[in-house]
Design a protein around this nucleic acid. Structure first.
Length: 619
RNA sequence: GCCACCUUAGCUCAGCUGGUUAGAGCGGCGCUCUUGUAAAGCGUAGGUCGUCGGUUCGAAUCCGACAGGUGGCUCCA
């Protein structure tokens, strides 16, 4: 979320100490507690505990916090002890701490071999990672001793402000084969004020939650009868989807992509050929034909279909690159616990693109895509950062080492040329090729994975794709997958929260609301005229002619976050001018300024067309 | 899929430890008012308390299964 800073460095021992104090409190309350790991995380800390049959709930937080308060009140000094690993193992056995014992045993082995099996967190919890381990450290305060690398603050009184947040299940060492422990999370800051600020931010995030706004702004629904992870979009939500898709499509068309269309199901043979059946078969929705013996599946991706279009004709090196685009829905049978709002759904609409190109064209094609992505994220007003995901030394990567080398270089060159803020990470590549992952920062400073550009050396191979080179030899093209928005559903989730539902004019489901002062014939006729003019300009305008007070109707428009509201009555009918009420986030000029009707509508239409998020109008 | 918690009217929520006709605000509808930049007044209709089963003289309330949701874990081509 936020970058590490000096204050985070100071917070580290504090948060670490709080994890320790919480463990002490838990042990006071449940002496049989077995402890796992208790690391510092973003904004706080957690500790994994095993309480046997006892199930914690947030109602227990009061007791735990009260116990922690006692320990903090006592201001007990933290005492650091060191002992050889073998002695520590004896300690763990004597104190019946099997999880600690397991960690120590691994640590002992890691001392002589590579520490590969231990995750960073686990290593970090008990010892400095990587190097040979002889001694491990313990921290003691009062009657509680815990295996811990530290550092801790001097005494239990110096831990700042904290609050326990939630409890959840977590597998021991992140492996679902292992026992499930209870993870208690807390947030912690140096001062009460910072803690309050953080909690206020969480409060704001709650208000902006896309699920809540989706309901309040009437954008999408879920239905028990339709099923989990299958969102249905209302007329207003559909405007958002279609405007976003149209924008992404038009951007890509401008960058040389052609639209294609494919059916949403296919024989499973397609995925047996692509290799997806073996790897992801359990995520496919099966479709049974009642007429034939075909075994069909709903498409979980579009690339295999698109390769069929490519392969339907002999291709020459002169034809490349060939660029297809399609905004279409794929279906993936995600596990039930993984679904959530629009973030993870089972019907996923991707603004998908596939480039088939020569190896020497990779860099130019990536440049092309980065330009499109840059334009899109500038319009939606989100900062981008990219991760270059490379292969590591492991095997299991397909394609020659030289191809990878060259491809990774070309990716990086393109990212550097695009002046993107980037970082590189080995071992994050897909098995079929290196990739660029885009993270967008929202208005609350949270980062979200959105667009992605991936090179693919495998599918061209699997599907036997080729083109005729200048010497008439047969050569494999490289495939580039790209989605600018990622998925429309996930993008909407992020974007609704980014804007808090205050959509810019080009996306707003309702751009102008007209409020009548009364229901007299002249007023109604004037409203009708306005509506017709707006329609001619392609604007989304609605008229609120209900028999309510003007104040109430203004409020309704405000709550619906409509960009422009105009009140019409005798005055407007006579002058032909309106004073638009402008949604606060869009205003740049102070003061009121009446504007001719025609000019007002033209201006709004122009703002929609140019996709600006501020207005040139005066309120 | 796993752990914990949740599900009462269209929405937001009351309903104490099981006890006669399940409440409120907003929204809807009707009437009065014809209104000038964030909520006019009065009236009225909405619920087999997520579904199914069990315990009980009696279940919105207790138990179980299922469905859906929330927070995590695992996963995310």
């Amino acid at each position: 979320m936020e970058a590490m800073s000096d204050s985070d460095d100071q917070l580290y021992p504090m948060r670490h100490s709080l994890a320790h104090i919480m463990a002490a409190a838990v042990q006071h309350l449940w002496p049989e507690a077995k402890f796992g790991v208790g690391p510092v995380v973003e904004n706080g800390f957690y500790y994994d505990v095993d309480l046997g049959e006892t199930k914690l709930s947030e109602e227990d937080f009061g007791r735990i916090e009260a116990e922690m308060a006692k320990i903090i009140e006592a201001d007990e000094p933290f005492e650091r002890l060191e002992m050889p690993v073998d002695d520590a193992i004896t300690w763990a056995q004597q104190n019946e701490q099997p999880y600690k014992e397991e960690l120590l045993n691994d640590l002992k082995r890691a001392g002589t071999t590579a520490a590969k099996d231990l995750s960073q967190d686990e290593m970090g919890t008990i010892a400095e990672g990587g190097s040979a381990v002889e001694n491990v450290s313990f921290y003691r305060n009062g009657d509680f001793t815990d295996l811990c690398r530290g550092p801790h603050v001097e005494s239990t009184g110096k831990v700042g402000a904290f609050k326990l947040q939630r409890v959840s299940g977590a597998y021991w060492r992140g492996n679902e084969q292992n026992a499930q422990m209870q993870r208690i999370y807390g947030v912690a800051f140096a001062t009460e004020k910072e803690l309050r600020q953080h909690l206020a931010m969480l409060e704001e995030a709650k208000k902006r939650d896309h699920r809540r706004l989706g309901q309040e702004l009437d954008l999408f629904i879920f239905s028990d009868m339709v099923g989990s992870g299958l969102p249905l979009f209302t007329p207003r939500g559909t405007v958002l989807r279609e405007e976003l898709a149209a924008f992404s499509n038009s951007l890509r068309e401008r960058h040389g992509f052609q639209k294609v269309w494919i059916p949403h199901m296919t024989k499973r043979a397609l995925y047996e050929a692509s290799g997806h059946w073996d790897k992801f078969g359990d995520e496919l929705f099966l479709v049974k034909s009642q007429e034939t013996s075909d075994e069909l599946v709903l498409k979980p991706m579009n690339c295999p279909h698109h390769t069929r279009i490519y392969a339907a004709q002999p291709r020459s090196y002169r034809d490349l690159p060939i660029r297809y685009l399609e905004t279409t829905t794929v279906y993936r049978d995600e596990k039930s616990g993984e679904l959530g709002g629009l973030n993870r759904v089972r019907s996923i609409t991707q603004d998908d693109s596939h480039v088939f190109c020569r190896q020497d064209q990779i860099e130019a094609e990536i440049n092309n895509l980065l330009a499109a992505a840059g334009e899109l994220y500038a319009v939606v007003d989100m900062k981008l950062r990219v991760r270059l995901s490379y292969r590591d030394d492991g095997d299991g990567y397909l394609g020659s080492a030289e191809l990878w080398q060259s491809a990774q270089e070309q990716l990086k060159n393109a990212v550097v040329a695009a002046k993107l803020n980037y970082f590189e990470q080995d071992g994050e590549a897909a098995f079929y090729g290196p990739k660029i992952d885009f993270m967008a920062t929202d208005a609350l400073g949270r980062e979200h994975q959105v667009a992605t550009v991936q090179l693919d050396f495998v599918q061209p191979e699997r599907f036997g794709l080729e083109y005729a080179a200048d010497d008439d030899g047969r050569v494999r093209p490289v495939m580039i997958h790209c989605a600018l928005l990622g998925s429309i559903e996930r993008f909407l989730a992020v974007y609704i929260e980014h804007t808090a539902g205050r959509f810019p004019v080009w996306l707003a489901p309702e751009q102008i609301r007209v409020i009548s002062v009364n229901q007299e014939a002249a007023t109604v006729a004037f409203a009708d005229k306005l509506a017709r003019q707006a329609e001619a300009l392609g604007l989304r305008l609605s008229v609120d002619n209900s028999n309510e007070s003007v104040g109430k109707k203004i409020r309704a428009a405000e709550v619906a976050k409509v960009p422009y509201t105009v009140v019409i009555g005798q005055k407007e009918i006579e002058s032909g001018e309106v004073v638009p009420r402008i949604r606060k986030d869009m205003a740049v000029h102070e003061g009121e300024a009446p504007i001719g009707l025609e000019q007002f509508l033209q201006t709004v239409a122009n703002e929609a067309k140019t996709r600006v998020h501020k207005t040139s109008l005066h309120g």
